[in-house]
Design a protein around this nucleic acid. Structure first.
Lengths: 165, 165
DNA sequence: AAAATACCGACTAGAGAGGTCGGACTTGGC
DNA sequence: GCCAAGTCCGACCTCTCTAGTCGGTATTTT
């Protein structure tokens, strides 16, 4: 269903939060602060933040009054960066990452087209920066939903609920 | 990791296969034929095809020498149609489908922006038809991969392997 | 030294995906 | 009319992966 993991969600929330704090006096925020503000388990939030440090998106300060802050200006960090830091590289199909992950490699007839689609999705996520996210969520949090709902028409009748899961 | 399920993969493979058969003398193909050609478990392939029938993308003929064929011309069936028929509606985040799936609904600061991203992805998948897929996979199966590999650079250094899983 | 924080790995529970089985219904041939 | 082949359908099992937890260590401030 093309869903991203909850850890990636948390990562985006944290990055968004830190992006807004950026530039203020106390730019460094502790894992506990963020976790409590958004009702996220502290340990899990910490784990996510640590991974973001390891991938270079955040820098951390240890010890009392330590915390996390962005390593780069938010305009230079894309949504794709954050998601891939947590969930690993995008793999639309099983054979997206490596060459021979699936048995059907030689017989598969959709590999090429799906690669193109994957690239378009990556490009989409790559063009949205954390700064844009922070700005959008700050200014117009509710208007966005209403704007996109009326675009949800599909080509065929797949919209009334395949009823699975 | 934003991956689509294997059933959706199989569905695309089958649709692609049927799209090429379209117009030939024996347009109807049995589940076993497709399954054996692509090394997919027969029962699973049948299950996927049946679901495609239920959602109206395929029509089936019962009995001996029965099988499946497209219900519409392949140009009018999008990749999004096929995926949603199998995996249900796209849900980039937990709160993509309904309003209050997640606890953090009121506090979430990334909901609006993620909705926009979701819509872009859906639009991307909606613009690619099965006919295009069939044409691409037929003409240039290998050239596509090489073209996209050199675009895989990230903004930060997240490319050397977050090493998770 | 004590408190607060980041850091790290291992572990568990639950959900969901992938895959399998058995049976009912339909069609074609004898 | 009967049997074989094939589709159709729902229930079931199994295994992976995700979300979340726990314990311990290192580092800095007070």
């Amino acid at each position: 269903m093309l869903r991203l993991s909850k850890k990636a969600d948390y990562a985006l929330i944290a990055m968004n939060h830190l992006a807004r704090k950026q530039g203020s006096a106390a730019a460094s925020t502790s894992a506990r602060d963020i976790a409590e503000r958004y009702d996220i388990p502290i340990e899990l939030m910490a784990k996510v933040l640590q991974r973001l440090v390891r991938t270079g998106l955040l820098v951390s300060t240890q010890g009392t009054r330590g915390g996390y802050m962005l390593s780069r200006p938010p305009v230079s960090i894309s949504v794709a960066d954050v998601i891939q830091a947590i969930d690993g590289p995008f793999t639309v199909t099983a054979c997206s990452t490596d060459k021979h992950d699936c048995e059907q490699y030689s017989k598969c007839n959709v590999r090429g087209p799906l690669w193109q689609i994957r690239e378009r999705i990556v490009a989409t996520l790559g063009t949205v920066s954390i700064a844009e996210m922070a700005a959008e969520s700050d200014s117009a949090p509710a208007a966005v939903e209403l704007a996109v709902v009326r675009r949800s028409g599909m080509t065929a009748n797949a919209g009334h609920g395949p009823r699975q899961g």
